[in-house]
Design a protein around this nucleic acid. Structure first.
Lengths: 330, 330
DNA sequence: CTGAAAGCGCTAACAA
DNA sequence: TTGTTAGCGCTTTCAG
C-alpha cells in the first residue's frame, strides 16, 4: 500500500493525502474521507520515502559504551524521554567500550543521515576527533569536555576533591586511590586531579603503593583492592573512581576482615543504587546522569532546529552524599 | 552529494557505483576508480533511499519498559550485540511502563517499516494483542509467553518454587510474599504460583497479612515490607519478586532491627548486582537476561531472513544462587 | 561485465 | 483549497 493506491481508495488525490499527514490545507470533507480510509486500510506513510524527499530523518544517533551500565542507561533514559516526546527516533549503538566500534558507528550514523548525534565516550583519540570533524550534523558529547563541541558534563574534579577532603577531615592520613585510565579525561584524569588537590591542601602525598587502575566494574575494583592490601603498608582511606569499583573494594576489605570506616574509609562516585545498600553504606557524589541525558537531548534539538552554530558546554553540579563508609569517630 | 554526482566525479556510471556498494559484478578498473573517489569525497550511499527502493530497512525496533533497569538493559545489551554484528540497526523506544506508549510505539515502528520487532513488555492487554496482530513483520517477545508469537522467557514459576522451597527447608514456617501485579503473567502470576506450590507441599498457607504488591523498585519494596512489619503477626521468611524489591525489604528489616536470616529470611529473583553486595548477601535465582537478548535477536533474524512462519517459544533455565539471606542455622 | 531507464513512495512547487 | 508534475537518491531489470 502506497500513497497513490491509498489516495485512490480514499477517493482523493495524492496531494490531499500528503497534506493530511503534514498539516497542510485540507477541507473537512476530504479530511473525513481520508480518516475513513485509514480506518479501513490501516495505511501509514512510508517514513523512509519521506526522508529521501525532505532530507529530514527525525532520527538521532546515540552512541554509548555499554547499555548495561547504570550510569549510561540513566543518561540514555533521559535522552530517550526528551527525544521521543519531540517525535524523534533513536538509533542506539552500544560499542562495548571499543574505540574502533565508536568510529564505525559514527560512519554508520552518517550513512543513515541522522539529524544529530549524542555521543557518550570515555576516551577521545585523534581518530575520534578527525572522524567527528567530518560529521556534518549537530553533535552533543556527554560526560566529557571536548573543545569545539556541544558538551554536557559533570564536575568530576571538584566532586573528587570534596570527597577526598571529607575523608581527610574525618581523620584519614594514608589516602589511597583506585582510578580508571587517565586517557578518560573525566572519570580518569579529572577525578585524580581533585584527589591530588585535596591531598596537597593537607600536605599529604599519595604513596604509589596505594594506587591502582581499575576497569569500570566491581570485580576489577575487588582485584585492585586485593593488590593494594597485599603490600607492606596499607592505606586508611581509598578514593574509588566509581561506585562499582568502590563496591568491589569494599567486598575485598570485608573478606580481609578490615572494618569500614574504622580501619579503612572508602568512597565512590556516581550515587548508584549499590551505594545505598552496600554492607557499609557508601559515601559518594551524586552525578545527575538522567539530567545529563535530558539536557544533552535538549541541546541537540536546539542545534538541529535552530541551526545553532555556537557550541556550548554545560556543567552539571553534584551533591556529596555522606554515608557510613567515611564517618569514622575521630 | 548523491550517487549521480558521485558517479560523475568517479568517472563511472550510476550503476557501477550501486554495484560497488552491493557486491555486484564490477571490473577491477572501476572498483579502483570508485575507491579513489570515495577517498576524495567521503561519499556514502543514502540508506533511506535504498530502503525505499528495496523495501528493506535493516532496522529492528526494540520496545522496552525502562532503559535504566538492570534486567532490561542487560537484555538490550544482548540484543544489540547480535543485531549490530549482523548489520542491523536498532530503533530503541523506552515506554516508561506506559501501556499506551507501548501501543503507540508499535505504530511508530510500523510507519518506519522496521524489518522486525523485539518487545519487552510486562502486561499484555487485549489492545496489545489486537495491535500486535496487525503487525506484518516478525515479532519476538522477551520475558513473557504469548501464544502465537515467538517468545524467549524464563522459568519464573519453577525458580520461585525452588527458592521458596529452599527457605522452607531451611526452617521457615510463616512465609510471606512481596510480588508484583498479577497482570504481569511472568514476574507476577508465575512467581506467585511457584511460591504457592512450595507452600502447598509443606502443608502451609500464606497469611494475607504477609502479602503485599510492589512496584519494580527498591523504595516500593521498602514500603511493602514496612506495611507487613507494622501488623500483628510478622513472617519469618519473605519471597520477593525481584532483587530490587528484596533490597528494599532488607533495608527496612535492618532499620527495624530484624536480623537476616535469623529473624527473617529474604530472597529475590534476578541475580542483579545488588544481590551480591547487599548488607546480607541475597539468595536469588539467576535469570539469563543477556542470553535472553541474544537468543531473541537470533530468533528474530532467523524469522526475518528465512521468513519462518512457525512460531517458537524458548524457555531459558535458571540457577539458584544461595547466599546468606536464607541460610539459617537450623 | 556495463549503462540507460524505469520506478520505489513520498513532498512541494506551481498553476488552476 | 486543490491536482498535476517533477524530482529526492537509490536499485534493478533489460538490452547491449
Amino acid at each position: 500500500m502506497n500513497i497513490s493506491k491509498f489516495a485512490e481508495i480514499a477517493g482523493v488525490s495524492k496531494s490531499a493525502v500528503s497534506r493530511y499527514f503534514n498539516d497542510g490545507y485540507l477541507s473537512q470533507d476530504k479530511r473525513k474521507k481520508i480518516e475513513e480510509a485509514i480506518e479501513k486500510t490501516g495505511y501509514a506513510p512510508n517514513i523512509a520515502a519521506r526522508a529521501v524527499r525532505t532530507r529530514v530523518t527525525k532520527l538521532v544517533g546515540v552512541i554509548l559504551p555499554k547499555l548495561s551500565s547504570e550510569s549510561c542507561s540513566r543518561v540514555a533514559e533521559g535522552i530517550s524521554e526528551v527525544l521521543n516526546r519531540e517525535g524523534y527516533k533513536i538509533l542506539m549503538i552500544s560499542t562495548a567500550n571499543d574505540a574502533h566500534k565508536e568510529i564505525e558507528s559514527l560512519e554508520l550514523l552518517r550513512k543513515n543521515r541522522v539529524d544529530g548525534i549524542i555521543l557518550l565516550a570515555t576516551v577521545f583519540t585523534d581518530l575520534h576527533k578527525s572522524v567527528l570533524s567530518k560529521v556534518r550534523v549537530p553533535v552533543v558529547i556527554v560526560g566529557q569536555y571536548l573543545k569545539g563541541y556541544n558538551c554536557v558534563c559533570h564536575n568530576d574534579r571538584e566532586a573528587a576533591y570534596m570527597l577526598t577532603k571529607r575523608m581527610l577531615e574525618n581523620g584519614a592520613r594514608r589516602p589511597g586511590f583506585i582510578g580508571v585510565l587517565m586517557e578518560d579525561r573525566a572519570a580518569g584524569a579529572a577525578r585524580r586531579e581533585g584527589f591530588d588537590k585535596a591531598l596537597q591542601e593537607f600536605g599529604l602525598g599519595c604513596d604509589p603503593q596505594f594506587t591502582e587502575t581499575s576497569r569500570f566494574n566491581m570485580d576489577s575494583g575487588y582485584d585492585c583492592m586485593r593488590r593494594i592490601l597485599s603490600r607492606k603498608k596499607i592505606p586508611d582511606a581509598v578514593f574509588c573512581a566509581t561506585d562499582d569499583i568502590a563496591a568491589g573494594a569494599m567486598l575485598c576489605c570485608r573478606e580481609k576482615g578490615l572494618r569500614i570506616p574504622d580501619d579503612i574509609m572508602i568512597c565512590g562516585v556516581g550515587d548508584s543504587k549499590v551505594a545505598r545498600i552496600l554492607y557499609t553504606p557508601l559515601t559518594t557524589a551524586r552525578l545527575h546522569y538522567k539530567t545529563a541525558g535530558t539536557e544533552a537531548a535538549n541541546m541537540l534539538l536546539s542545534a538541529i532546529q535552530n541551526g545553532d552554530a555556537i557550541q556550548r558546554a554545560l556543567q552539571l553540579d553534584y551533591d556529596i552524599i555522606e554515608r557510613e563508609s567515611t564517618q569514622r569517630n575521630k
